[in-house]
Design a protein around this nucleic acid. Structure first.
Lengths: 188, 188
DNA sequence: TTCCTGATGTCAGTCACTGACATCGCTTCG
DNA sequence: CGAAGCGATGTCAGTGACTGACATCAGGAA
């Protein structure tokens, strides 16, 4: 395991998920992650801003996907429809990786500090969606609310998708949660 | 400034907010906060779990207030009405403390790690609301969605209340945001 | 007074994270 | 081919958040 093995970043991500799963997030030191990946602690911090971030490498690309999806929609689409389309795209992107998502989510939900990081990633997602909606002429606070509501629906559907034993289609769960949301907000 | 001055916890909170405002969160050490409060670093960590928590001491009581408000409503109230009532109670609780809330919020929005902590407090609020709704016979995912949506409305209204120069009534802003939300989710 | 208890102080230690600088392997240019 | 340049990695010495163990102090109970 010499210097210059390929994919240092990917090795660090894998080593971290393994160790966080094996012995827990807090009981794992960055030095141990780096060692398992054949690197040093200092190199870990060159690839990831902190010990949590190694679990959230994919968040940026997910955000790009959602924004791109909304941006490509015809102007005629309503805010809620735009958000729905974005969520469907996200569901499709997860698609095959339920096992990995589940493992990762188990680690995250077991640690408050990891939950914090997850929440701020979702907030960033919401802000990006709201920005895109505003760019399409949606006013405030409609843009922010549509984005927040979209993320709320995503959270609820994702949780169900991960937890259920009888695997159901992610996008189906999203449509279901969205319908439920409309019923709730319409309630007197 | 001897040992056993009263209200150590309150002195720490005030010293922290002052220092975070004066020189920024990251540039302030816990030792400095403790020193200004006439205490030691070790004592700081006996009152607050970490350097961030000192800004969020009131979150627990806010949560209690919201839960109590919902719990006292007649069973006939719909989920969205229950959440609305809780938000109105929260608005009333803030009432006079706009200046303090504003100062605190300025510090929080300037630091990613503080934003993370704020988000998890709001998530805890949402979870507590959802629990209470479930206790009143509301099913899932309606309970979670109503709670999430309520928190989203609160966030939007709070931001406006803090930012606007011409001070408007907090509960008025909440009703306004809620109406907007209903319009958004009803949109085709 | 004496004892007990809870709040505080002291000290030593771990670990996340950073800056400065050295080193390595590959690529490009002469 | 060999030297220079450059990006990725290693090494080292810090700072500061946070913790455990133990001592100490003030006030109330016996």
């Amino acid at each position: 395991m010499s210097r210059w093995e390929p994919n240092a970043r990917g090795r660090l991500e894998q080593a971290a998920l393994e160790l966080y799963t094996e012995r827990g997030y807090e009981q794992t030191t960055v030095a141990e992650i780096a060692k398992r990946a054949g690197l040093t602690e200092r190199t870990f911090f060159r690839h990831f801003a902190d010990k949590r971030e190694v679990l959230f490498a994919g968040a940026a690309s997910l955000e790009e996907l959602l924004v791109a999806t909304v941006a490509e929609l015809p102007e005629s689409a309503s805010p809620i429809d735009a958000v729905t389309a974005a969520l469907e795209a996200a569901a499709a992107a997860f698609g095959e990786r339920r096992a990995h998502a589940r493992k990762r989510q188990t680690v995250i939900t077991a640690n408050a500090v990891l939950k914090e990081r997850e929440l701020i990633k979702l907030a960033s997602l919401s802000a990006a969606l709201a920005d895109t909606l505003r760019g399409r002429g949606v006013g405030e606070p409609a843009a922010s609310l549509a984005a927040e509501v979209g993320v709320a629906v995503f959270k609820v559907a994702f949780e169900r998708w991960i937890e259920e034993t009888n695997q159901r289609d992610f996008s189906h769960l999203i449509r279901e949660s969205l319908a439920e949301l409309k019923a709730v907000t319409a309630g007197t």
